[in-house]
Design a protein around this nucleic acid. Structure first.
Ligand SMILES: [Zn+2]
Ligand SMILES: [Zn+2]
Ligand SMILES: [Zn+2]
Ligand SMILES: [Zn+2]
Lengths: 177, 177
DNA sequence: GCTCCGACTGTTATAATATAACTTGGAGGC
DNA sequence: GCCTCCAAGTTATATTATAACAGTCGGAGC
């Protein structure tokens, strides 16, 4: 399979803006997990936050695949690991992770994913594959700028914006060959 | 496609694209309701759809304010009107209205609004006022185009996209003067 | 008119997602 | 040691959504 997506027109996305959508790209995933955990640990150390065992474990669970997971999916895993695990356990850990940028909530799915670019201060759009449930982050600054423009014309001041696309990822879009 | 999104002065939104965000604009709201109901009736007549009494009543309830309402908010109103009204009553009517473009689901709120531009074949972005809970539709075609471009670079084909902004509407943004 | 069919409605039950409220525990500062 | 604070544990409940099946109604065709 040889797909080339850059051949048509000039990109609006500069090199430095290129946030690779690695969920859909083969990569060393155990390194990917280790990196994310290390980044979270370091960020917390620097900011005086407490990445407790529970929070770290929930982050690791989210990181195990680049898929959105419901709070109760996470709870089930914690239970299998021997915890008693009532809902607030999962929701509190998720709140912490989302609050501090280590995870995101996918509104369309009422579910959560580990952030693929922790520490980068980004406001991603999500690409949600309806076939395999994988979710990737993609840059959204240009789209957000246009949205802000449209909002401004209505006198509306945007605090946050949710941008989530549903469709087929590269793997699932291939004809069933 | 030639878009320059850093240009402050020139609008990317043509006159004909101007979907006035009337939720935030004073207007003859009873005419607004009547128009929407009439449009729905006509569209259904033309398309062989059945705008039953339940569906019409739910549409009217949604139209009563330019706010997002939960399915159970609607159920409560139906109950006050003497119906027995179990959840599927509301969800079925909402499914129909959303399916055929007479209403939208606001993912961020898990709630529904009447479409402000029925029959226009549009894919709006929503502007959600966090203070007064009013919701307006605004054009999103330019932002969607950029999102599609970013997705294409990842080999992702978009079927649908949710674009929802939370912030302050013109009325609520005014300093408490 | 009658019948059949398909779509809508009524009803019961339950699933899935999320939070409130209060108690217990534990690390660190003083 | 003791206090404070925040996290974790626990119970209960709120909110959002769907499954499943039984009744009803209206129009198409005969
Ligand atoms: Zn990975
Ligand atoms: Zn996929
Ligand atoms: Zn109106
Ligand atoms: Zn407002």
């Amino acid at each position: 399979m040889e797909l080339i997506y850059h051949n048509k027109t000039k990109s609006h996305y500069s090199r430095t803006e290129q946030m690779d959508t690695l969920s859909f790209t083969p990569h060393d995933h155990s390194a990917c997990i280790a990196d994310a955990v290390r980044t979270a640990e370091q960020t917390c150390r620097e900011s005086g936050l407490r990445l407790t065992a529970q929070r770290k474990r929930v982050l690791e669970i989210l990181l195990s695949g680049h898929r959105a997971m419901g709070a109760y999916d996470i709870l089930d895993i914690l239970k299998e690991e021997g915890q008693t695990a009532q809902p607030p356990i999962a929701y509190r850990a998720l709140d912490f992770l989302v609050q501090h940028g280590f995870a995101h909530k996918v509104e369309r799915l009422n579910a959560f994913i580990a952030c693929a670019h922790p520490g980068e201060d980004h406001a991603p759009a999500f690409l949600i594959c309806s076939d395999c449930r994988r979710v990737a982050e993609t840059p959204s600054a240009p789209a957000r700028a246009l949205l802000a423009e449209a909002a401004a014309e209505a006198g509306f001041r945007i605090d946050t914006a949710v941008i989530e696309a549903v469709g087929q990822c590269p793997d699932c879009a291939e004809p069933a060959a």
